[in-house]
Design a binder for these strands. Structure first.
Length: 276
DNA sequence: CCTAACCCCTGCTTGC
DNA sequence: TGCAAGCAGGGGTTAG
């Protein structure tokens, strides 16, 4: 479940190794992992052969390789997707669907057990077309603020958790960080969005920003599958107050944490600390 | 326009 | 010990 902090951690790791390097070959083992790509596997390979990686960017949970020739490669890690930088000659392990060979001999492996992730070639700037153009604001940018969240909440009648998971409203939050932010803000996940107060929207927005920043500093959360570009685990899971802790005591007050389903997602909250 | 349900997929966990 | 059902869930599509 790579969310914004995990994707950002992968990006920072890849930045150390990839920009300025040329792709010398592309080995596509599972064609169907290419989704919404400009062209088939053969086109993907030939378009990128010999091309130099200029920059690595992120939008929501998407990672973007900006190539020197203005092509782009769009990655989504889905639930279990990983991008590994590997030394020269590393074997291609199970569930590695694409291996990029680089001009310094190292390799970049895209590995995804559940195959919910995707990789796509884009011949033009992808920011102004779907799916990126449909994304809401970046949660760490100033345009995501209490006023925005309050106004948006008033215009929908879903559970606040469902609203925050909606990438069209704010880009990059997933189950972990929404549950943690709702706990920090003292708001229950099933609270209807149009009943959120202006003050709650302010508190929630700040909680989201603080938690995301802390999680990035901790290298993300490794619950089961997540690893960074070097194959190392994150540490933020040690700080989780509620995610994955259903029926365990609240770390703040000792009350047994409640586990419920909201919008089809398992959700954990503290009935004492989250009164609203 | 909106929301809920379903689908994709594999491997770990749980129950018999 | 073995087997199968249950579960995890981001995002796209379909149904209502």
């Amino acid at each position: 479940m790579p969310e914004l902090p995990e994707v950002e951690t992968v990006r920072l790791g890849l930045l150390k190794h990839l920009p300025g390097h040329r792709i010398t070959d592309v080995d596509i083992r599972l064609e169907k992992i290419l989704r919404r790509s400009d062209g088939d596997a053969a086109i993907f390979r030939s378009a990128l052969m010999g091309q130099c990686i200029a920059d690595i960017r992120r939008r929501g949970k998407y990672l973007l390789f900006e190539m020197e020739n203005t092509q782009w490669v769009l990655f989504h890690l889905g639930m279990t997707g990983k991008l590994y930088v590997k030394p020269a000659g590393s074997p291609i392990e199970k569930h590695t669907h694409i291996a990029f060979h680089l001009d310094n001999g190292s390799m970049l492996h895209f590995n995804d057990v559940r195959q919910f992730g995707s990789v796509a070639l884009r011949c033009r700037n992808p920011f102004n077309v779907p799916p990126l153009s449909l994304l809401g604001p970046e949660p760490l940018e100033p345009e995501f603020n209490g006023n925005y969240l309050f106004q948006t909440s008033q215009n929908h009648r879903v559970a606040i958790k469902t609203l925050l998971l909606n990438q069209h409203i704010v880009a990059g939050l997933g189950n972990i960080y929404v549950d943690e932010a709702l706990f920090a803000a003292g708001v229950r996940p099933r609270k209807r969005s149009d009943r959120i107060t202006r003050r709650e929207a302010n508190v929630l927005t700040e909680a989201i920003k603080v938690i995301l920043k802390e999680a990035i500093l901790a290298g993300g959360s490794t619950v089961r599958d997540y690893r960074n570009a070097a194959g190392a685990e994150g540490h933020f899971q040690l700080t989780h107050k509620v995610y994955g802790r259903g029926n365990q005591p609240c770390k703040t007050c000792g009350t047994t944490l409640q586990k419920v389903v909201v919008g089809g997602r398992s959700s954990v909250y503290c009935p004492a600390c989250q009164k609203s």
